[in-house]
Design a protein around this nucleic acid. Structure first.
Lengths: 204, 204
DNA sequence: GTCTATATTGTGATAGAC
DNA sequence: GTCTATCACAATATAGAC
C-alpha cells in the first residue's frame, strides 16, 4: 500500500513549528511558514485563522515536551541516584533532538509571563512530591542537607543551559566546532549525573 | 550646583535598553522607545539613524556585561574554591540587578549565531587559562577529575538559569510569589557555590 | 480546499518647518 | 535639535474565483 500523503494541516503545523522555534513569534513570518509548507499564504489562514492561533497550537505542544517528566521518573521505586541518572539522561536526549526548544519556551514565557498562570493548571507536574522525596532522603541521612528547590533548579538548569547558550559556549570554548560540541553534549549525560550526585553525596 | 540634565542621547539609550531587553529586537518598537524617552520618534532616528544601529549599541554593552569576568577572578592568587565562591557571588549579584540580560543575549545570539563570530574577537575572555588552572588542580589531586569545560559550563549555567527560566520556575515551584523567589535567588549565591565545591571535592 | 488579488494596518524611516 | 506630517513598504488578514 502506498504511503498516505500528509494532509495540509499537518504540513502547516510542521512548517510552523520549525519557523516559530527558530525565530520566535515576533520574528516568524506567515509567508515563510507557507513557503516551507509549499502552499499558499492564504491557506494557512484558512486552517488557523490567525498567526496567534497557529502559534498557540505550536506552543502548547512544545511546552508539554519542555516540561521534564519529573513525575515519571519519581514514581519509579529505584534509588534516588538512579532516578537522577535516568532523568538527566532522558531529558538531555530529548533536547539533543529538539535543540531550539529551551530558548523558544524561555523567551516566549519571558515576553508573556501572564501566560504561565494559564499553563500551570494545564499540566500535571507536581514538584511538591519531588521536594518531599528529597527531604526524606536527607532525613534518612542518605544525602547532604540541601534546599530541595535549589537542587531541582540545578538539575534542570544543568540540562538546559548548554542548549540555550549553544552559540556563545560553542563560540567561546569550542572554537565553533559543531562535531566537538555534539560530542560534548553526549558526554554531558553522564557528566551532569555524576556532577549532581557528587554534589549531594555525604563525605565519609 | 543643580543636577545636570541628562542629554537626549543618553535618554534614548536608557529607554532602548529597557525595551530591547524586555522584548528583543523583533518585539521592540521604535515608537515605544521614543515614548519611554519622552521624545519624538523622529528624534530617535536623528540620533541613531536606524533601529539596527540603535540595537547594536545596546547589544554591545549588554554583551560585555553578560560575559562573566572569569579572568578577573582567575588572576587572583586565592585558592580555587575561593575563586569559585567569588565568581558565583559576583555573577549572581550582577544578574539580580539585570534579570532580563540572560534571555536577551541568549535569544538574540540564537537568532543570529553568525554575530557570535564577530563578538568573540572583541572581548578578551580566554577560557583556556581557566581550563589549564582546573587541570592543574586535578593533577595536584586537589579536586575530582572532571572535564574542565563541563565544569565551566556548569558554573555559568547554574548562575544563569534561574533568571532565564524565572517565569516557569517561579510559576511551578514558587506559586508565582515574587518575594519568595527573590529570597531564593539571594540564597543561591551560597547554595550554588557549595553545590559546585561539593561536586568536585574528593571524598576522604 | 486552494489559489490570486487586494484590503488594511503597522512600522521603520525621511522631509521639512521651526 | 526637536517637532509634525508623510512616505514606503512589510505583514497579517480577507474576498472571491475556481
Amino acid at each position: 500500500m502506498a504511503k498516505r500523503e500528509k494532509n495540509t494541516e499537518k504540513l502547516i503545523l510542521e512548517a510552523a513549528t520549525k519557523v516559530f522555534l527558530e525565530k520566535g513569534f515576533d520574528g516568524a513570518r506567515m509567508q515563510e511558514i507557507a513557503d516551507k509548507a509549499a502552499i499558499n499564504k492564504a491557506l494557512v489562514h484558512y486552517y488557523f485563522r490567525s498567526k496567534e492561533k497557529l502559534f498557540d497550537a505550536i506552543f502548547q505542544e512544545a511546552f508539554v515536551q519542555f516540561i521534564p517528566k519529573v513525575m515519571d521518573v519519581m514514581t519509579s521505586d529505584s534509588p534516588l541516584f538512579e532516578k537522577i541518572k535516568a532523568f538527566v539522561n532522558t531529558y538531555i536526549s530529548m533536547l539533543i533532538k529538539n535543540p531550539h526548544l529551551p530558548i523558544f519556551i524561555l523567551h516566549e514565557l519571558n515576553r508573556h509571563p501572564e501566560q504561565m498562570v494559564n499553563r500551570i493548571q494545564s499540566f500535571g507536574a507536581k514538584p511538591e512530591l519531588l521536594v518531599k522525596n528529597i527531604i526524606k532522603e536527607i532525613k534518612k541521612g542518605k544525602i547532604r542537607p540541601v534546599d530541595p528547590r535549589q537542587l531541582i533548579v540545578n538539575m534542570i538548569g544543568l540540562c538546559i543551559f548548554p542548549f540555550a547558550g549553544r552559540p556563545i559556549i560553542q563560540g567561546v570554548i569550542f572554537k565553533n566546532d559543531d562535531k566537538t560540541y555534539n560530542r560534548f553534549l553526549e558526554d554531558r549525560k553522564k557528566d551532569v549525573a555524576d556532577f549532581i550526585i557528587h554534589s549531594i553525596s555525604i563525605k565519609k
